[in-house]
Amino acid sequence: MQKTKNEFYLDGLLSGDELVINHIYKNTFPQVITFIKKNQGTYEDAEEVFQDALFQLIARLKVRRFEIKSTFDGYLFTVCKNLWRKELNKRKRRVRNGGVIELIREEEEHSSFILEQERWELFEEKMAQLSENCMKLLKDYFNKVSYNVIVEKFNYSSENVAFQRIFKCKKRLAELIKKDKRYRELN
């Protein structure tokens, strides 16, 4: 049987195959560098994020066994984006706390993120089960598109209608999440 491309990457990672790892670097890392440099980071940050993402992916494969539903590259890039999102939030918090650095054990840091990422994937999966209209609406709303723009874009008769609609979509999403038994498990 022929291996799928994802299997090729995952098996290579699990066995620590240097050729596969180098290949992954060449394929995905440039994209991560570009993203992080555009978002207040440095090459060093990108390197750290990329290595953490790969390392956590391996740990997750070993302990949890899971399937990547998209392409491997796409998946890895998403994880890197989330890791960077978390890091930026941490840095903001540090500024607010007057520069106090939170001391977290390394393994704790990895394991927390792995579980947060799993939860994030669950939420994404449920988002995809919403109607396309709902999904777009929620994304726009949370990424600070103003009500009047939303009203126009989605052809609503008033801002109040838009508000009601957002509200319903969110409620639907919450119901979908609650129904999934993984939501409780991951708590």
């Binding site: 999102r85 930026l88 939860r119 994404e124 994304k139 919450a174």
Partner: peptide, 19 residues
């Protein structure tokens, strides 16, 4: 749950859960 959904949808935030 609603708090988590809000964080999820906001592309700039990340909720560090008490896992």
């Amino acid at each position: 749950l609603y708090n988590e959904i809000n964080h999820h949808l906001n592309e700039e935030s990340w909720l560090t859960t008490n896992a």
